[in-house]
Design a protein around this nucleic acid. Structure first.
Lengths: 354, 354
DNA sequence: CTGAAAGCGCTTACAG
DNA sequence: CTGAAAGCGCTTACAG
């Protein structure tokens, strides 16, 4: 069953090729200074024997020069919770890989400040990182900088927020269009197909947020015509705005019976709903899943939430990156989508391990 | 941030204790033949320096003697799909750990045959396994055998099916009572709290299946009184029975508006529903999540499914076990619950990596 | 361009 | 009970 490797080592290849282990190493790792003919022969033999490098030995032998992974992200009021989870996932994955000589360097910016993020990139480069994980801000300057870094040979993983037309090793994060469709499907199930939906969102500072709304719109049109989108309300998200906006939205559109908070703001939204006496009359779907939302689910104030699994996002970003750094194997895919879970009152904290 | 180890090696401890590296190794690994006083001193120094073994070096040095992990499971008509997923997860985790000298030996029984499983245990022991992952059959003989093995020092992980009063390193699998509650909550959401629920299940050959039903019953009583359980129909699950039973159930209980298939049988069930002209009038929740169910979700024949994440179950069983074998660190918990996901038409295949 | 040798951190016969 | 030495598979100055 698992006879697939072993016994074939660099030593065996060296013997068969009639060279030293050092030369085999150089050839297989494309280091310079090997006679091309010899290198070719060595590679052929390796191929023939289905040689697979022993990662343990490789890492151990290189353990003097640790490789630093850079992490750049940014916090702001409405993403801080998931950022915490993401960081936990990252730290977990890194701690599992300490023996491989992996180290983490972190820089954190604020509030979608692209210039600040550019600075952080410069700073982190000075630390001598060998790869970068970044939650990029949706800005041309950032896009260009990342393109440049990637072309210069730095493996870059975009985390949580995908940038279009940007070179990268991979994107790890939610499948935003899919998330929008999930909200549509969930609304359908909750309302038995007949709904007057209100949406509260923020101005689309992230590509994914726009994709989410667009795909919801499309799916309600084509698959769930009984779901009417009454109004999409874009507010600059802070608690005051979310409160005011929820109130206004519901008073001006009394037919709304289900409300989707695409970005947060649920806390004040619920307060507004209570103040106008609609608690229990409006169903709520939240695309946030913080401890506050958990509480709201428990109290039946929110019907369902979509969790973006921050922990997994962070964990897999590191896992994928380190696998790549250790093996240089071409990745099987460019986009690694982390599932978005449907959370209801009963399945919170379902999984008790990480 | 991650300054937590390194630089402190066995060599350093040896120097400080004034002994050889061999002796340090013997002491720290509790091998016999070390002067107790010396051992104590060595351990104190290690503690003081917060020594953590380098797993890479340890595994590499031991890579001649591979450790075999035994896997015993059983297939039968209605669990085969999830078993496939479980096996995929196991194989993935094992393949990621080949360099650690991990090998898998697999034995497969059939149809809840406990005697057969006992035989398989004997057979697999002869292979010289150093740990066992087993999907145990709910039988006293098995229970006793596992207890005995565990007491003899074999690390045993119970996978997917938990046995009570059985010694084990850990259980990895669904939280069955929770799954029942999820079905209750899902039913509540789908039906807006008013439901006449029919249940089709199999005689409880597994503890978990009973727990699932019990917890659903309890939660509908306490939290969702609007959900009436009309009938719980236990059939020996094969397609003919599932067909007959669904038909009978729905004809005799025309008030049923939502049906939960707790074990499978959905394929024939849907056929029966069609034959009596109720397609689209009865909502279906499936606790199975096979490719057939996927298709049924796409065709709107099934409203929602609960996935038990077989892949993760298998993957984590191996991960947890190998971590343990390599470090002998006491596990943080006894039960590792793998989340059960709510699947609707829109979030199938949400995650595209494993 | 290539080889011999030392090294990564740990384990393990072997000899005493 | 303990140490010296070889070994796990790979990498890397160093010398040529």
């Amino acid at each position: 069953m698992s006879e697939r490797k072993n016994s074939v080592t660099i030593k065996k290849i060296a013997e068969m090729a009639g060279v030293s282990r050092g030369t085999v190493d150089r050839a297989l790792n494309n280091r310079k200074g090997v006679n091309p003919e010899v290198a070719k022969k060595i590679k052929e033999i390796a191929e023939l024997l289905n040689y697979k490098v022993n990662i343990l030995a490789k890492s151990l032998s290189q353990s003097k020069n640790k490789s630093k992974i850079g992490l750049i992200y940014h916090v702001n009021l409405y993403t801080s919770v998931i950022i915490n989870e993401i960081e936990e996932g990252i730290l977990k994955a890194v701690s599992e890989r300490i023996d491989y000589g992996i180290e983490l360097v972190t820089k954190c910016g604020q509030n979608f400040d692209a210039n600040k993020q550019l600075e952080l990139i410069d700073e982190i480069l000075e630390e001598g990182i060998s790869a970068l994980i970044i939650v990029p801000i949706n800005d041309d300057k950032i896009r260009q900088r990342i393109n440049q870094l990637y072309l210069e040979g730095l493996p870059v993983i975009l985390l949580t927020n995908n940038l279009e037309e940007t070179n990268k090793l991979a994107y790890v994060g939610p499948n935003y269009p899919l998330t929008g469709r999930i909200v549509a499907g969930l609304t359908n199930i909750i309302t038995n197909g007949k709904a007057n939906l209100g949406i509260i969102t923020a101005p689309c500072s992230m590509l994914g947020h726009k994709q989410r709304i667009d795909s919801l719109k499309e799916l309600t049109k084509t698959r769930y015509p009984g779901i009417k989108i009454i109004k999409i309300s874009e507010v600059i998200l802070n608690e005051i705005e979310a409160y005011k906006d929820t109130k206004e939205l519901l008073i001006n559109n009394p037919q709304i019976d289900i409300l989707w908070y695409a970005h947060g703001g649920v806390l004040s939204g619920l307060k507004a709903i209570k103040d106008i006496g609609l608690t229990g009359k409006i169903k709520i779907i939240s695309s946030d899943f913080s401890s506050f939302i958990k509480q709201a689910l428990i109290e039946d104030l929110v019907t369902a939430a979509i969790s973006q699994n921050g922990f997994q996002q962070g964990y897999y970003a590191v896992k994928i990156l380190v696998d790549y750094l250790l093996t240089k194997n071409t990745l099987q895919q460019k986009d690694f989508f982390i599932g978005s879970d449907i959370i209801i009152k009963e399945n919170m904290g379902d999984m008790n391990l990480n």
